[in-house]
Amino acid sequence: MQPNYIHIILADDDEDDRLFFTDVFEELKINTKVNTFNDGEDLMNYLNKVETIMPNVLFLDLNMPKKSGIECLTEIKGIHKMSEIAIAIYSTSASEEDIEQTFVLGANIYIKKPDSFEKLKKALSEVVSINWQYHTNNLNKDNFLLRL
């Protein structure tokens, strides 16, 4: 049986951003389970555990100590059991080329952290719902690209 909630993980070294993130999902009327990690290394350690159930969506901040978002992304893309995770890059800003580069490396979603809580709420809800569509409608995840 599929679990009846969406499992979401966020790796971000910024405390405020983690707070906004969890606040959003508390306010959204979607059944979610949110885990957060302070850096890329913590995240990868968790994911690499045998007993870990893979999340549906993984949000990665790009600038993180110890292991950057890009490093996590490339690592995850090389591990078979993690291939089903939808990966969202969750970053302050980047140039068009950098964004395209993360997509090429295998990211599915790129979210520029918005400058208001309402926008953030809207963006995250869109990500989750579209991802849910992909998840529930057998859409080709290889072609799943979303930029907000």
Binding site: D14, D16, D17, F20, T92, S93, K113, P114, D115, S116, F117, E118, L120
Partner: peptide, 20 residues
């Protein structure tokens, strides 16, 4: 300019929270 964005964004987000 990149690093300035971050605190600014937080100011704006907190302001939006405050407002709401």
């Amino acid at each position: 300019s990149h690093d300035l964005q971050e605190p600014l964004r937080k100011i704006q987000t907190f302001v939006s929270r405050l407002e709401e």
